[in-house]
Structure formats: structure tokens, C-alpha cells
Amino acid sequence: MTADLAPRLRVDRGMPSDLSRVPGVARDVERLGYDGCWTGEIDHDPFLPLLLAAEHTSRLEIGTSIAVAFARSPMTVANLGWDLQAYSAGRLNLGLGSQIQAHVEKRFSMPWSHPVRRMREFIEALRAIWTCWQDGTRLSFRGDFYTHTLMTPMFSPEPMPYGQPKVFVAAVGEAMTEMCGEVADGLLAHAFTTKRYSDEITTPALQRGLSRAGRERRDVQVSCPVFVVTGDTEEAMAEAAVPVRKQIAFYGSTPAYRKVLELHGWGDLHAELHRLSKLGQWDAMGDLIDDDVLGAFAVVAPLSDVTDALRVRCDGAIDRVLPALPATLSDEVVESVLTRLRTTDEGSPR
């Protein structure tokens, strides 16, 4: 990875949504040497665990991957982001996602339209609000989707010394990816991404956005989860591959991610996975993920080689990686993998 892309590969981990577990897990994640942790908005609130993670760590970055932007207004997200940034002493990465139309309208009962334009405006509104709070300037944001023109001293939080939170945006399609290059601080890539898709679709689209805005590649961090199949024996690797095949099959059955399979000539696989998903045949779906498909979406390597394989997967495309290491690995093995992953062949930090 060249110096103008990222000075060092950062290695992150997911954080549980069970609040009772967060303090212990956060301490362990920091002790093992991870750089950051992320929470998702699935069946629990994504922000509450971050408060606990910040409280029980001192250097670990915290972030949402993702919070559903269109389920909220920029003002409510601005408040949450401001308070977490202040409490964590500047460690927040605010990750936003659009979700899909059905969820926004039918689950959250919120409006949906022009997701790329709306997301751009959401970010611009956030920054206008934060600038108002930090600098005491008049709030006067008027857009096509959001308007924020009222802010009195009673409702303005205190300025803080840590700067605005970094804003990451989840993107799979080229239009949202280009928008990230223009206005975001980071891009949250989906786990259902191959090295080829990153090189041929994501990176060029990101660069187009950067070029339009006169920005450099180093101005945007790309974060991506990566499936990992590893072990110290063939039997261990085969066992580790089973849940990964099922997860890849699940994502592959989703129409929104069909284009990734089609890039590899696997469009028929999507059609069959989608058919089986309608029948609830989840185990059969996993059986359709052969070694070629597995190797495209996951890093598959024995423990002795997994660090080098992860580096190859990330090089030139990923700045922050969330390696989905098998849960069976001991803390000592995980710590060793992390240390080697963040160190060059010459022994110096990346």
C-alpha cells in the first residue's frame, strides 16, 4: 500500500449490541490491539453501546456501521454525534447508511427519495449544525430535503476541542461511492465485496468523486469487513468455512448485491440462491458456494499464511479492515495475527 493511500492498515472489530457485554468486550478488544470497534443497527440501537465502549477504553475508536440516516433527522444525529465525540475525546466515526426503501417507509415510517442526493444533503446539514455549535455562527441550512434555520443558545451544546466527528457512508453502488469521494470522510464497504469488485468498481468510482471535489485518496478512509477462513489443520479450516459459505449465500440471494456476482459471471448463482431463499432452504444455499466463490469473497489461508493473505486482500483498496476471524481462535492467536497484520515485513509499523 503506497504512502499516499494510508500510512497504516487499521484493524477493527464488531461490538455486541447486548449492553451488559459491551464493557468487557470493549476492554478486551483494546487490550488485544484492535484500532477501533463498530456497532450496527439491526435489532438494537447502534449508539448506546458506543457510550459504554468509550467509557471503558482510552484509545479505541468507536463507530456505527451503520446507523440508518433516513430514519432520523440531521438534528437528532448531530446531537448524538456531538455528545459521543465529546465524551470519547474525539474517537467517534459516525457511520451512516441509507437502508432500502421498504425499510425506511414501512419499518421506520419515514420518507424515501433520491437516496444519493438525500445522503449528500444529510451530511452537509450535519456539518452546518456542528459548525454553528462550534463557532457560534448563525444556522441557515436550506436544502431540498432538510431545512435547519433555528438555533438558540438554550439548544446549543458547548464547543469542544476535538473537532467534528468523521462521517462515513455505506456504499455499494457507484453513485453513492462517488458521493463518498466528494463529501465523506470514509466509505463503509459491504462484506459482500470481492477484491475484483473493489479494484474494478469501488476504487474507480471513489476516485471519480475525489477528482470532482479536488480531494486526494488519503482524504477518505475505506473500511471493509472481510470474511476469513483459517485454522491450523485442514479439518479446522473446513469447519470454519461452513458458516462463511452460508453467510455468502445469504448475501448472494439479495437482489441489491446481484451486481457483485454478475461481475464474476455468477448471475445464475444469484438466481438460484434467491429462489432457495424464498423456500427457506438456507443449508442448501450454503452448499452452492463452491471453493471458487468462497475464495473470491473470503480470505482462505492457514494460520501461518493468513496475515499475508489479508494484506493482499486489503492492499490499495482497504484502509480499515474488520477481519471476521473464526471464534475458535484463542486470544493469543488473535493478538499475534493483529500484530503481524499491522507490521511490515521489515518489522516496522505500517
Rank of each mutant, 00 (worst) to 15 (best):
R196W: 07
R196G: 01
R196H: 11
P204F: 12
Q207P: 00
G209W: 11
L210G: 06
L210E: 11
S211A: 15
S211P: 00
R212Y: 06
G214L: 10
R218N: 06
Q221I: 07
V222D: 00
S223D: 02
P225F: 00
P225C: 03
P225K: 01
V226I: 04
V226C: 02
F227W: 07
V229R: 02
G231C: 08
G231K: 06
D232H: 13
D232F: 09
T233F: 10
E234F: 09
E235M: 08
E235R: 12
E235D: 15
M237T: 07
E239L: 13
E239R: 15
A240P: 05
V244H: 06
V244Y: 06
R245P: 05
I248D: 02
A249G: 14
A249V: 08
Y251W: 12
T254W: 04
P255S: 08
A256C: 00
A256I: 10
R258T: 05
V260R: 03
L261N: 07
L261C: 05
E262Y: 06
L263Y: 05
H264P: 02
G265L: 14
W266Q: 06
W266N: 04
D268F: 07
D268N: 14
H270Q: 10
L273V: 14
H274K: 11
H274Q: 12
L276Q: 13
L279H: 08
Q281E: 15
W282S: 12
D283V: 14
A284N: 12
G286W: 10
L288W: 10
I289Y: 03
I289E: 06
D291Q: 15
V293Q: 03
L294H: 06
L294S: 02
G295I: 04
G295F: 04
A296G: 03
F297R: 05
A298N: 03
V299C: 03
A301C: 04
P302H: 11
P302N: 11
L303Y: 05
S304I: 08
S304L: 00
A309R: 04
A309D: 03
V312Q: 08
R313V: 00
R313K: 11
A317W: 01
I318N: 00
D319G: 15
V321N: 00
L322K: 02
A324M: 14
A324W: 09
P326T: 08
T328V: 12
L329R: 07
S330M: 10
D331W: 12
D331C: 05
E332D: 15
E335C: 11
